[in-house]
């Protein structure tokens, strides 16, 4: 019990509270585009990109950059744009190309880290990049600031383009017919996804990002029936799950990423049940 109290005392330190804040912001923006990604069958892009981000992180690591975020961000955004292009041109070939890129990045990333890393704890480093830090508290001050700024930018872009994103996601042909530059918005979506992935990597690691993006949206879709209510619900749910996960991981000492995802999964089960019981109540 004293141990527990001791751990909760962490929360008094401003730095810990910043970390919590960043966790919440990241969870919030990663959930925003979940519905769009699921419904536009873009979720595969999110998955592939997270592997690319892993490769980028490995490159940044061997370049011994003190701040790897700009490099990782740049590589991931460029890959997002390229993937979207190939994916649109030929559906099936696009999928295969994506699989190649994502598995390739994983392999090359690990290889590079193995060959060049002087770190004494290589498998620990790899594990951290794949599954997230054991604790979000290891983020340094610049990273915390960068995360906060990027998260706020993502949220603002999402709110400003909310109606256009809805139109493009619901019916791209109609949207284009009425003069919406669907290509441009798809590009915006891809870039935002790339930013979210780089952000979320700090919280849950590259292998678990898709969970953070997709679970809240899928949960919300079980119960809510309008785009706005689904979006709001998945944002709120994601934040609650992230908070619960972070606090839980601080208390029990479990890895933060997988704890958050475990909470997300529990919430999904709960919402599935709720959706079955309410029998598609119209909200």
């Amino acid at each position: 019990m004293t141990q527990l109290a001791e751990k909760l005392e962490y929360l008094q330190y401003p730095f810990v509270r910043y970390a919590l804040l960043v966790g919440v912001l990241i969870a919030l923006c990663s959930s925003l585009l979940g519905v769009t990604l699921v419904l536009k069958r873009f979720s595969f892009i999110g998955d592939g990109l997270s592997h690319v981000a892993f490769g980028a992180m490995a490159i940044a690591a061997i370049m011994k950059l003190t701040n790897d975020m700009p490099v990782v961000l740049l590589i991931t955004v460029i890959s997002a744009v390229l993937l979207l292009r190939t994916g649109q041109r030929a559906k099936i070939k696009g999928d295969a190309a994506l699989a190649m890129i994502s598995v390739g990045s994983l392999a090359i990333g690990y290889l590079l880290m193995n060959v060049f890393s002087k770190s004494a704890n290589l498998s620990g480093d790899v594990c951290t990049t794949l599954f997230g830090s054991t604790s979000i508290l290891t983020l340094n001050k610049t990273e915390v600031l960068a995360c906060a700024v990027l998260s706020v930018a993502v949220i603002i872009v999402f709110i400003l383009f909310y109606n256009k994103i809805f139109a493009v996601t619901f019916d791209e042909n109609f949207a284009r017919a009425t003069g919406i530059k669907a290509g441009a918005y798809n590009l915006i979506i891809a870039v935002v996804v790339a930013v979210i992935i780089v952000l979320a990597m700090n919280l849950v690691g590259s292998l678990l990002i898709s969970a953070l993006v997709i679970f809240p949206a899928l949960s919300a879709m079980r119960v809510f029936k309008s785009f706005r209510s689904v979006t709001i619900c998945s944002a709120v749910l994601s934040v609650i799950c992230a908070l619960a996960g972070i606090v839980c991981s601080v208390i029990t000492g479990t890895p933060v990423g997988s704890t958050i995802v475990a909470v997300d999964i529990a919430a999904f089960a709960l919402f599935t049940l709720a959706g079955k019981i309410s029998g598609g109540k119209r909200i």
């Binding site: 069958r41 996601t169 619901f170 019916d171 879709m221 309008s226 785009f227 209510s229």
Partner: peptide, 13 residues
């Protein structure tokens, strides 16, 4: 189109 079948959207939206 197929996408619309499981799309959560209200008539108003």
């Amino acid at each position: 189109t197929d996408v619309q079948r499981d799309f959560p959207a209200s008539v108003w939206e």
